[in-house]
C-alpha cells in the first residue's frame, strides 16, 4: 500500500514539469502580445514597447524565461499579473474558494442524482425509465453550457422569478470573507437571510455545471452495473435467495463502483473546464472567469501559473481517487 502511494506521488513530479512546460509554451503560442494587449487600442510607442519588453524580460531567450519561471515557482513565487499588477497566488487564493464551492456542490448534485439514476436504469434495463434517463443524459452531455445557462436564467430568474440571475449572494449582504466559501461565511456572518441568499445563488450555476458530469456518471454507472449484473457471482447471490436490494447494493454496486469512481475523478477536470463558461454566465467570481479574462489579455504570468495551479489541484484530486481505489478494491492493496 505504501509503495502504491509512493509510486503515485513519484509520478506527480514529472507531470508537474510537463504541465508547467506545456502551459508556458501554450500561452506563448497564442497569437497576440501581452504588452500590446495591456496598451489597449491607443497603442504604445516603439520605444516604450521595447522598454516594457525588457522590463518583463520577454526579449530574453525563451528557455531562459522558462527556467526563471520554474525556479521562481519552486520557491513559491508564481509571479505578478501583467494586467492587474497583483501577485498571481493572491488572486488565485482569493478566487479559488468560489470555484471550489461551486464545483463541490455541482459534483454532489452529479453524484447524488447520477449514481442512483444509473443503477435504476441498469436494473430496469429497456424500461421507459431507462430510455428516459439515458435520453436525458445524452441531451445533457450534448448541451452547450452557455446556451443552457442562459436558458435557465431566462426561465427561472426572468420568467418565473424564482432564483437570482447571477452573483454569489444578495448585494445587501456585506461581510468580510473568512473562509472564502460563501455558504460557510454567510452562516458565520450571523446575518439573517444571508445563508438562504447564498444557497439561492448557487442553485442555477451548480445545476448548469453539474449537467455534463451528471450525464457521464449516470451513463457510466448504468454500463458498469449492467456488466456486473451479468456476472456469475451476482447470479450466485440471487440463487442464495438474497433480496434484490442486497444483491444490487452489496454485490453488484460495490464492484461497479470502481469504474464509476474513476469517472468521477476524471470529471474534476471537466468541472474545471465547465467552470470557465458557467462562471462567465453567472458572473461567478472564480478562477474559470479569471483564466478566460487573462487569456484575453494575454497575461502570460496568470495563464501559465493559473494553469499550473489548476493542474496541481486536479492532480491532487486524482491522487485522492487513486487512494480511494485502494480502499474500494482490495486487489490494489494486496499488489
Amino acid at each position: 500500500m505504501l509503495r502504491y502511494i509512493l509510486n503515485k506521488l513519484a509520478l506527480i513530479v514529472p507531470t508537474i514539469f510537463g504541465i508547467s512546460l506545456a502551459a508556458f509554451a501554450f500561452v506563448r503560442l497564442l497569437p497576440g502580445d501581452p504588452i500590446l494587449a495591456m496598451a489597449g487600442e491607443r497603442g504604445v510607442s516603439p520605444e516604450r514597447y521595447q522598454e516594457l519588453l525588457e522590463r518583463f524580460g520577454y526579449n530574453r531567450p525563451i528557455w531562459l524565461q522558462y527556467f526563471d519561471y520554474i525556479g521562481n515557482v519552486l520557491q513559491g513565487d508564481f509571479g505578478i499579473s501583467i494586467a492587474t499588477k497583483r501577485p498571481v497566488i493572491g488572486e488565485f487564493l482569493a478566487l479559488f474558494p468560489a470555484t471550489l464551492e461551486l464545483a463541490t456542490v455541482a459534483m454532489i448534485i452529479a453524484v447524488v442524482i447520477g449514481i442512483p439514476a444509473g443503477i435504476f436504469a441498469a436494473v430496469k434495463r429497456g424500461s421507459w425509465f431507462d430510455q428516459l434517463t439515458m435520453g436525458a443524459a445524452l441531451t445533457g452531455y450534448s448541451m452547450p453550457i452557455f446556451w443552457w445557462g442562459l436558458l435557465l436564467i431566462i426561465f427561472f430568474s426572468g420568467y418565473l422569478g424564482w432564483t437570482p440571475v447571477s452573483g454569489r449572494i444578495g448585494l445587501q449582504y456585506f461581510f468580510p470573507p473568512v473562509t472564502g466559501f460563501m455558504l460557510i461565511d454567510s452562516l458565520l456572518s450571523g446575518k439573517s437571510g444571508a445563508f438562504s441568499s447564498a444557497v439561492s445563488h448557487l442553485i442555477l450555476p451548480s445545476i448548469v455545471l453539474a449537467t455534463i458530469p451528471l450525464a457521464v456518471i449516470a451513463r457510466q454507472t448504468r454500463s458498469a452495473m449492467l456488466e456486473v449484473l451479468g456476472e456469475d457471482y451476482v447470479r450466485t447471490a440471487r440463487a442464495k435467495g438474497l433480496t434484490p436490494r442486497r444483491v444490487i447494493g452489496m454485490h453488484a454496486f460495490r464492484n461497479a463502483l470502481i469504474p464509476v469512481v474513476t469517472t468521477i475523478g476524471l470529471q474534476v477536470g471537466t468541472l474545471m473546464a465547465g467552470a470557465i463558461l458557467t462562471e462567465t454566465i453567472f458572473s461567478w467570481p472564480g478562477i474559470g472567469k479569471w483564466m478566460i479574462d487573462s487569456i484575453g489579455k494575454r497575461d502570460y504570468v496568470v495563464v501559465q501559473s493559473g494553469l499550473l495551479l489548476i493542474a496541481l489541484i486536479v492532480m491532487a484530486v486524482n491522487l485522492i481517487v487513486d487512494l480511494l481505489y485502494a480502499v474500494i478494491n482490495p486487489r490494489i492493496r494486496v499488489q
Binding site: 437570482p164 439561492s200 445563488h201
Partner: peptide, 11 residues
C-alpha cells in the same frame, strides 16, 4: 427559490 426571492426583495 421562493425563499431566495423573498430574501432578494426584502433586501
Amino acid at each position: 427559490a421562493a425563499l431566495a426571492a423573498a430574501t432578494v426583495l426584502g433586501g
